[in-house]
């Protein structure tokens, strides 16, 4: 059962009517006694690209990892507040974290293909989730997914070679392919281009533009140019606070907050 939201907040800041996919309420997070997030409120629009920017240590990656509960694996981490995905709180005890993650995929900073063949890298998760069963189904799924990740042409003749033998950019696209093979609704990208050269980055950006037709994408990035190029909405974080959120065009051309302006004009960060 999916509930639709129209958010006044969005209207005010972005000016567009957008369906909200994820809404974050008063999210606070501590590592031991250090508070890393100080009450974040944010709406993420469906089938759009939202970018999180801000200086190092501002909490943007931490927030991203809250959205598929990857922080669960850090033992001294404590969370308060709500994260609603399609109006379901993901921190509710009934929610199954494994199931949650199959709906919210994640791409990491450093390309991290499994030490298996390209084919197996893609087929790994669908096999576990029982998405494709027979060999033919799986072949088809792998082909489709690799095509979607615009990797098919480059690897179709070497599907059974190890994924680690690909170039960095190809590895990262393989990681994206691996993520969309599970048919997620949201894709979280944690600085996906920081380890790549400009040409490989451009390919990933192109791919993101393609993917947003089907998926809600959230990207954490250090590069403001990248945020300006690819995203529809931008959130600026500083010291664990959400300073400003809005339409990317607005954030970069007429920021409301002084801190945002200082950051995007390069006065600090």
């Amino acid at each position: 059962m999916l509930l639709q939201f129209g958010y006044a907040n969005d209207l005010k800041q972005g000016g567009n009517m957008n369906k909200s996919k994820i809404s974050i309420h008063e999210l606070k997070l501590w590592y031991d006694k250090n508070q890393a997030l100080h009450g974040i409120d944010l709406q993420i629009a469906e089938k759009k690209i939202t970018s999180f920017i801000g200086p190092s240590g501002c909490g943007k990656s931490t927030l991203l990892r809250c959205l598929n509960r990857m922080n669960d694996h850090i033992s001294n981490c404590r969370i308060e507040g709500k994260v609603l995905i399609d109006n379901q709180d993901i921190y509710d005890p009934n929610v199954d974290v494994v199931q949650l993650r199959s709906h919210i995929g994640m791409v990491f900073q450093k390309p991290n293909p499994f030490p298996k063949s390209i084919y197996e890298n893609v087929a790994y998760a669908p096999r576990i989730h029982g998405i494709a069963s027979s060999g033919d189904d799986m072949d088809e799924l792998v082909e489709n997914v690799l095509k979607k990740a615009s990797l098919w042409k480059e690897v179709k003749d070497k599907l059974h070679q190890p994924g680690t033998a690909l170039s960095g950019g190809q590895q990262q696209r393989l990681c994206i392919a691996r993520t969309i093979a599970v048919k997620p609704e949201v894709i979280l990208m944690d600085e996906p281009c920081s380890a790549l050269d400009p040409i490989a980055s451009a390919k990933i950006e192109e791919l993101m533009d393609e993917l947003k037709k089907e998926y809600t994408i959230i990207i954490v990035t250090h590069s403001m140019q990248q945020a300006a190029r690819v995203s529809d909405f931008t959130a600026f974080f500083y010291m664990g606070n959400l300073v400003e959120f809005g339409n990317t065009g607005n954030i970069f051309t007429k920021p409301q907050q002084q801190q945002t302006e200082d950051y995007i004009t390069g006065r600090f960060g």
Binding site: M70, H73, L100, R101, M106, N112, C175
Partner: peptide, 27 residues
């Protein structure tokens, strides 16, 4: 075995044991 491989597998929605048996141990 690098933490990033475990993260990648867990982020795909696998249980701990699936990650261990299919990713960590083979590596």
């Amino acid at each position: 075995v690098p933490r990033s491989l475990r993260d990648a597998s867990l982020a795909l929605g696998t249980t701990n044991s699936e990650t261990i048996i299919k990713i960590v141990l083979p590596t």
